[in-house]
Design a protein around this nucleic acid. Structure first.
Lengths: 230, 230
DNA sequence: CCAAAAGTGTTCCTGTTACACCCATGG
DNA sequence: CCATGGGTGTAACAGGAACACTTTTGG
């Protein structure tokens, strides 16, 4: 039985649902590539590709992202595995999707050789998508939304130094609703994982205090099973 | 590139972390099989096996469970995909693990041909396990614990008719701590997804009201995004 | 009448929500 | 001095946690 299943075999791929925030447009963005080859040549799709034989799944996503877009993630986690027969016209392809986040400083896309082009798309204005990638993205957005209300995910979408207004705006963009400023600040400061850097950001008006995220303290609190609700 | 990856290919398997509650022992149990073949012949492992080419991942788990144990699940969801190179001595094997729950009436194991034998093990007293199955189980237990505090998962581990004490005991076994009876009852009744059947269970002492779960109402409330905390 | 499990309310406390004004800066 | 975003406190409310006794049955 089992042991005799040598051929035929399914292919295994990875796909990346990569989120970034565009503060100018106040929009949640997702990274898509225009497919350079069949199937679905010319259509938009998630970055991803085939897993190599001696390569971890996570490593495969990172490699594919580098090849196709040269982007650097600040966070990544496994999302879900999509394996319905027929989801890929080439044959049986099982794909493990990952959720990735990038900081604004690293959203610049350096085009690689694999993909014709890579572009950030507004999550609410997506084009038609190849394969079952629309479903994968839907799953990714759900995960991101549910995650942000109990983990400081917003941090991974911000630069190293950020103002509390930045953080609030990130959360608002992801959740798609406004949050009360005073309540928000009280909550995020309560845990003590945000530390003022002493620097301020001067833009047009009153300067804003810059904060950084204390990863060590967060890891410590997380180990104690403390919740982080926003 | 990608398109040229025809051989070699990884194998793809599914594994099932199946939970059941043993009310006599007041213990959370997990279903394991003794492997009938190499590798790890004679060791204990999760039920599972290779995915067929035209078969959904979920269908593969259900089939393997039927072949190996003939057990019927009351609930199933995808857990995580384990794909580290070297996790299987036979070569590259990527495995998608599922979490399954069975009701007490269906915990009887009818041995199949594939597995030497299948046995329910106390989650706290597991034997040495084949492959990376110890890690998979750990992931499964975490998921079950986190799930039970916001979804009526306990239901799936109980018979169709049950008392509130049964439900509470199920939650206590999973969470590994005691719960206040009055608070528990108030909470689970508040949502209106439990309906008294009118029957009572007479055992030794005072008879207990039997309840059933209103799946329709639950689905309705869930669609409205209502939380179910225990 | 005793043992054992079923069943039932209230109080306190914590955390969430709602809400409006002053401050610092640049132009 | 005006426009703009930065920054702050309090009061009402809801939900969670802690807590003990009465009821029903079988033996």
């Amino acid at each position: 039985m089992a042991y005799t299943y040598k051929y035929p075999k399914a292919d295994h791929t990875v796909d990346a649902v990569v989120f970034g925030i565009d503060f100018d447009e106040a929009a949640l963005k997702i990274l898509l590539i225009e497919r350079a080859r069949e199937p679905f040549k010319g259509n938009w799709a998630l970055p991803g590709g085939f897993v190599e034989m001696d390569e971890d799944l996570e490593a495969a996503v990172i490699r594919e992202l580098r090849e196709e877009t040269n982007i650097r993630l600040s966070y990544m986690e496994q999302l879900y595995t999509f394996g319905a027969p027929g989801r890929d016209p080439r044959g049986r392809v099982i794909s493990t999707a990952f959720l990735g986040l990038v900081q604004p400083g690293h959203i610049a896309i350096q085009e690689g050789s694999d993909a014709a082009k890579a572009i950030w798309w507004n999550v609410n204005e997506l084009p038609g998508l190849a394969f079952d990638h629309a479903e994968i993205i839907k799953t990714g957005v759900q995960r991101l939304r549910s995650k942000i209300s109990w983990q400081p995910v917003g941090i991974e979408l911000l630069p190293d130094e950020f103002t509390l207004s930045d953080l609030q705006q990130a959360c608002e963009i992801i959740l798609g609703r406004t949050i009360d400023k005073r309540n928000f600040r009280r909550k995020v400061l309560k845990f003590g994982v945000l530390a003022p850097t002493g620097n301020v950001r001067k833009e047009n008006y009153r300067p804003a205090q810059l904060y950084q995220f204390d990863k060590k303290r967060y890891a410590l609190l997380q180990k104690q099973g403390i919740d982080f609700e926003v």
